[in-house]
């Protein structure tokens, strides 16, 4: 029985994740179009809603090209390593509290309830950089290699700030378990959400969101791709489904990071003024909050120009990291005072 429940949950959650990723490709194009006074894709299906399907079909039927001198095995491993970590991390995100549907007890609406949930997410998202590096190196192309190198240096630098900021939340809620982090914030009073903790919460939220952008290789930190300098960056030589897998990985990573931001700072599934809301309201609240961050990803991409690479490194090491450390100290002070 429990196996069936897990199976149902897994298929729902992964279907949701992949669906979100597909929808994000459409949203990206639609929203960018609106912001530039264009219309965007509108040919496939009503208003273009079936565009992701058409893209998928196109990707499958494209010819796969492996460049000469490419390291075949690693070239193949690249897209897998890029997509797998993002898809694994969704497992620990809690979408709603204790859930009973039609009298069947589904327990916590997440795939697994790990004590080290946050650590699990951070560890696996740290692995996602391998996809970019391997793709870049194995392509036997100078542009790809540069893209991969940049990505590796960038991700290692920004991961520090990301972890430090996440630690602030761990300190505030006293647990690494994502469910407990949400439960601490789920008091019916939305001022208990971590983003409303004076100073620490706001600084943490802003830092976390920005470092998330760097971690998922999104604008304005997408140096691994950086079209004007590096053609396509690490995926210059990729085609067909392999390229699509990189794409999918990026959008999955965005989705997971948006979920994580929601859980850490916006109280996850907690509904304002309604502590024990039914599961459907909780899921709805969670999705609304996540959708905002997903929109933010797109919104920022089509607003800001790309940083310069040295500026990026300066920003990461000389500004974000000290601020994140100071914020962690401040969080310690807040906790010991209260």
């Amino acid at each position: 029985m429990s196996f069936v429940i897990i199976l149902i949950k897994a298929s729902l959650i992964y279907g949701g994740l992949l669906g979100t990723a597909a929808a994000m490709t459409l949203a990206e194009r639609k929203i960018s179009a609106w912001m530039q006074l264009r219309i965007g894709p509108n040919r496939v299906g009503p208003g273009g809603v079936l565009q992701p399907l058409a893209d998928g079909v196109k990707f499958i039927f494209k010819e796969e090209v492996t460049p000469d001198g490419a390291n075949k095995g690693l070239f193949r491993l690249g897209p897998i390593m890029a997509a797998a970590p993002a898809m694994l991390t969704i497992a620990v995100i809690p979408f709603a509290g204790e859930t009973t549907i039609f009298g069947i007890d589904f327990g916590l609406l997440s795939l697994t309830d790990l004590d080290i949930g946050l650590l699990f997410v951070l560890a696996l998202s740290g692995l996602s950089v391998y996809g970019v590096i391997l793709g870049g190196w194995a392509s036997n192309s100078k542009y790809s290699l540069l893209g991969g190198l940049r990505a590796s240096a960038q991700m290692v630098s920004y991961e520090l700030s990301l972890i430090m900021t996440a630690l602030t939340v761990v300190a505030l809620s006293g647990s690494m378990n994502l469910r407990e982090i949400v439960e601490v914030q789920n008091t019916g009073n939305f001022l208990d959400w971590h983003c409303f903790t004076p100073v620490v919460g706001q600084v943490g939220l802003i830092l976390f969101v920005i470092t998330t952008f760097a971690e998922t290789n999104r604008h304005p930190f997408d140096f691994a791709e950086c079209e004007p300098e590096l053609v396509g960056g690490f995926h210059t030589e990729y085609s067909s489904m392999k390229f699509a897998l990189f794409f999918l990985g990026e959008y999955c990573a965005m989705t997971v990071m948006a979920c994580l931001t929601t859980v850490l700072f916006l109280g996850g599934y907690s509904v304002p003024f309604w502590e024990d809301a039914p599961w459907i309201v909780q899921v709805g609240t969670f999705m609304t909050k996540t959708a905002f961050f997903l929109f933010l990803f797109i919104w920022v991409r089509w607003t800001l120009p790309r940083f310069r690479y040295d500026q990026l490194m300066n920003l990461g090491w000389k500004i974000f990291f000290p601020i994140a450390l100071a914020n962690l100290l401040l969080a310690g002070a807040v906790i010991s005072l209260s």
Binding site: L122, A123, L124, G126, Y130, V156, E159
Partner: peptide, 13 residues
């Protein structure tokens, strides 16, 4: 998790 985070995510990179 630490094994993957530190060795996999940082040192091996």
């Amino acid at each position: 998790a630490i094994q993957i985070l530190v060795y996999g995510g940082a040192i091996m990179v």
